[in-house]
Design a protein around this nucleic acid. Structure first.
Length: 554
RNA sequence: CGGGACGUAGCUCAGCCUGGUAGAGCGCUGCCUUUGGGUGGCAGAAGCCGCAGGUUCGAAUCCUGCCGUCCCGACCA
């Protein structure tokens, strides 16, 4: 196929858009791939939509390969479905009404709709099922950002699996995990599969696919030896051991006037801040004050604590703290506190300095088990100077883009929506579900983040808008056309730049748009019948006869 | 929702402090020039100076309110 640039809408820009920060945002706008309509709302221009469709195509092929069936559900959905699953109150949901005042929701994902259809499944003989569609999602994001990276409306490939039991779900989950690896590989991405914290979604498994990129919103933790990868929220780095003071037989009060921070405390007592503990009173939704205890040099991992509490939480108010501890923030500790204490694993052994629950005082030599009772759990945030939990190597923390997320949902949706089947033993059971999402637009942005240089984008071959960009310089229009035809005959998609522009402009645009091959026909070609073939990613260039084009030029 | 910045031609911006009726570069149109890395020249078209109110003889400029966009944070099925 040959498209002529003179006929296409390819509005490239010389300047970066004023409000762009991320490389992908700048380059996709400058290259004429996308334009903004409003915050978080984007139109894909012809070039951009070609790339989007390439990504979609890869997804379709890999979904087909695992037996997932494509279908198509509406974006507009009745509010009733969302009330049943208790997602109607989510602040991210766009709500609207029809002319009769009936409430509707613009789907932000399609668990409800697909599960609604799955209620028609009656027998274990119909299982398992895997369904997916590529459909628009609308989310009332509080803060869209970075071009395509965080938007309010986008196309998502979302699949849903329905199984008899957990064992079946394991199989469906595994199939998707493998398919996702193939998809992101084919997109030319560097990425890591990591276990994500399921948080409120429940304790079951959930994997994230993270692509390292400057513009990313997630923090990815990897090991220098490549044997560990995790999302920061869920990472379990190994902290350095504290330098403890000499042990005491019992806790000992020490006056610490005006000291309310860990740094201040460590300095005042001339001790290692890792040998202190930090008390953070929180209140779970609808509950009473719980004390979260982490090491002084650590930060509380909110996601992890949420998992332990099985509930969202907020910091306790000053009044609640006074009532529960008899002291104010900065002097709090576990001894004497009557409520639930959740302490980080790092506090299980050793003697720490803790707040004395008396303003201006701390306790030395506080030991878990001996001096206070606590539940132990991993509730600390991994730090850059932690070491790898599997090999002890150095950890690398970098920002990354979430390309896709796969969840084991279990019966979270099938129970409220009544999606049950009759099992072999004649009992009625809820379908055991998984859901699996990829945003092609975000994948596209991630590809640009990872494949660009000063001049523009360098698309990997499977997602490029065109395989070859033929630049016709003045006088060599004829030979450029022949070159384009030869490439077309070899099965490549060709963009023929036949516009009446200077060579420099055409080269600059070709670099920006980033097709893998750039073929230039100019005056020299008139003499020897050869054209320049340049590889966008490597910069390698060779002169080839037009008759040789397409033979090995991929 | 909290903090910050910005809003002037299609794009990138100057002008605003110190009020006097609109500018540049790029792009666009026509002609000439040039033709392997955004060429040079001539002539043009193009602006509700985000919106509304106020102050003033007079507001892009000062004041108030609103709207929009971006960045940081909170949030993120």
């Amino acid at each position: 196929m040959i498209d002529r640039a003179s006929k296409l809408y390819l509005p490239t820009l010389r300047d970066d858009p004023a409000d762009a920060e991320a490389a992908s945002h700048k380059l996709l706008v400058r290259g004429g791939f996308i334009r903004q309509v409003s915050a978080g709302l984007w139109t894909y221009l012809p070039l951009g939509w070609r790339v989007h469709r390439k990504v979609e195509q890869i997804i379709r092929e890999e979904m087909a390969a695992i037996g997932s069936q494509e279908m198509f559900a509406p974006v507009l959905t009745p509010a009733e479905l969302w009330e049943k699953t208790d997602r109607y109150r989510s602040p991210a949901v766009f709500k609207l009404e029809d002319r009769a005042g009936r409430p509707y929701v613009l789907a932000l994902s399609h668990e409800e709709t697909f599960t609604f259809h799955a209620t028609e499944i009656q027998s274990y003989k119909q299982l398992p099922q895997m369904w997916y569609h590529l459909q628009t999602k609308d989310r009332d994001e509080p803060r869209p950002k970075a071009g395509l990276l965080r938007v309010r409306e986008f196309v998502m490939k979302d699949s849903y699996s329905f199984d008899r039991d957990e064992a079946g779900l394991d199989v469906s989950f595994r199939l998707h995990a493998d398919a996702y690896v193939k998809i992101f590989d084919r997109c030319g991405l560097e990425y890591y599969r990591v276990q994500a914290e399921s948080g409120l979604m429940g304790g079951s498994e959930s994997d994230d696919y993270l692509a390292p990129a400057n513009a990313g919103e997630n923090m990815l933790v990897t090991c220098e030896n490549g044997d560990y990868a995790a999302d920061m929220d869920a990472a379990r780095g190994v902290p350095r051991p504290p330098r403890f003071a000499d042990p005491l037989d019992a806790p000992e009060e020490v006056e610490t006037p005006g000291v309310t921070t860990i740094e201040g405390l460590a300095e005042f007592l001339s001790i290692d801040d890792a040998a202190t503990s930090k008390a953070m009173p929180v209140v779970p939704t609808g509950g009473t004050v719980v004390l979260a205890l982490v090491r002084g040099d650590d930060r509380l991992a909110e996601e992890k604590l949420m998992g332990e509490l099985q509930s969202d939480f907020r910091p306790a108010t000053d009044e609640e703290i006074r009532a529960a501890f008899g002291a104010g923030g900065g002097s709090l500790g576990p001894i004497g506190f009557k409520g639930r204490v959740i302490a980080d694993e790092t506090l299980r052994t050793g003697q720490f300095v803790a707040g004395a629950n008396r303003d201006g005082w701390h306790l030395r030599g506080v030991e878990a088990g001996r001096d206070y009772e606590a539940e132990f759990a991993d509730i600390r945030t991994t730090k850059e100077d932690d070491t790898c939990p599997s090999c002890g190597g150095r950890l690398i923390v970098q920002t990354a883009i979430e390309l896709g997320h796969i969840f084991k949902l279990g019966a979270r949706y099938s129970v409220p929506l009544g999606a049950t089947f009759l099992d072999e033993d004649g009992t009625e059971k809820p379908l055991i579900m998984g859901s699996y999402g990829i945003g092609p637009g975000r994948v596209m942005a991630a590809i640009v983040e990872q494949h660009h240089d000063e001049q523009g984008i360098a698309w990997p071959t499977e997602v490029t808008p065109y395989d070859a960009h033929v630049v016709a310089l003045a006088g060599a229009e004829e030979i450029a056309l022949h070159a384009a035809e030869a490439l077309d005959a070899a099965g490549l998609d060709v963009l023929l730049d036949d516009r009446d522009l200077r060579a420099g402009e055409k080269f600059a645009d070709a670099d920006l748009m980033g097709c893998p091959l750039r073929i230039t026909a100019g005056k020299k070609s008139l003499e020897d019948g050869r054209v320049d073939v340049r590889n966008r990613a490597t910069g390698e260039e060779q002169r080839l006869a037009v008759s040789d084009l397409g033979k090995d030029s991929r």
